[in-house]
Amino acid sequence: MSAYNTNKTIIALIFLTCLTMGALLLFILNAEIVVNGGGIKHETFSGMSIGGDGLERLSYTGIPSYVFGALLIFLIVVFCVLGIPPQKRDFQLYMFVLCTLILSLFVWYQMISSHLEYLETGVTGYFLGFPTASAWQMYGIWLSSVPLISLYSIGFRRYVFSDSDEKEFNALLEKSRSNEK
């Protein structure tokens, strides 16, 4: 597969993902409206909102929303791959990115399942100050991008800007400056 085709495949993936997300948005916009879907005012404190019945607000749009979130995580990872020049993408990179995607989706799944478990049982554990589900969000979502940041920093010369890229750019620059003169 040529480098050009690889980018075409990624763009097609991004396009399909965005189309699906658009369709999900349309579905949710047209779903049965739940009063507390976007929050309701707190009965006692005027500056606060509350969510109310958690299971009720997920009744019509829960699954499409979860899928929307998973697709967004997929999109973030794919955009990072698009930022790596096609000729630099190798098997190891794809494996690394796949593992990052699986890790991020695992965090997403854990957050949702902990939330649903709490809504059904009314019981939750705590981790570093937050209820389990929110702890997955707070720490998990934040940290699930660390592999991507590490890939950029540690793999910079291999996947982002190699020594030969630097030489080629300097040559381009020199040529451009001499043309200007």
Binding site: G37, G39, S49, G52, G54, T61, S65, Q137
Partner: peptide, 18 residues
Amino acid sequence: DDTETMMPFGAAGIMASL
């Protein structure tokens, strides 16, 4: 005080959060 405010999607709900 409220089961949802301190959960991952807060008072504003899942789509606002997403």
